[in-house]
Amino acid sequence: MTERAAALAPISAGARRTRRLSLLALPFVVALALVVHSWETALEWWRVSDLVERRVEAGQSASYAGADWRLLRSTRVVDRPDGSAVVLVEFEAVIRDPDAFARLPCTIALADAEGRRWLPSFMRPRELRGLQRNVAIPETCGSVSLTRPQAGTRVEIAESFVLPKESLAEAQPMVSLAAGRPYFLRFEELGVGE
């Protein structure tokens, strides 16, 4: 048989079936390869992202990431000349699972309906003095976590924020801990008014 004749020889039914099956399997194999290669990255993204919101009504507490969280108070400390306001937000956390609670990073933020987020900011010493009560330097979420409080301990956590005065009315505190993600808490009321 010449080469040309061999090339034109009819393909057997078995070979045709194998080829068809291979083509059909190709999309699934490619999808499987993508899943295998990106699985760990996707899992990591799921663990570090704030994806699912759990709303907490005003005055209520919520069990989250090894502690029962409650918003104690929000204080409008001072207004700055640039149109911003400094707000101190204080939480109470009763520790239930010390290991889960101590897992960092811990993020407390203020968020509005448009998805904008204000992260904690340092308060100037003279602004802290403006608070009309005796407040020590507030313990932040990260610093409290590092002390690894025991189960049953009640801790107070405070963070300060700088945000536009016009955003005060709709900004809401949110809490996100490593052990709780992808869930995060959103407290319904900041309560400092515009």
Binding site: D82, R116, W118, S121, V162, L163, P164, E166, S167
Partner: peptide, 9 residues
């Protein structure tokens, strides 16, 4: 400086 949403600097 730290930039905040809604507060041009």
């Amino acid at each position: 400086q730290r930039l905040e949403p809604g507060l041009p600097k």
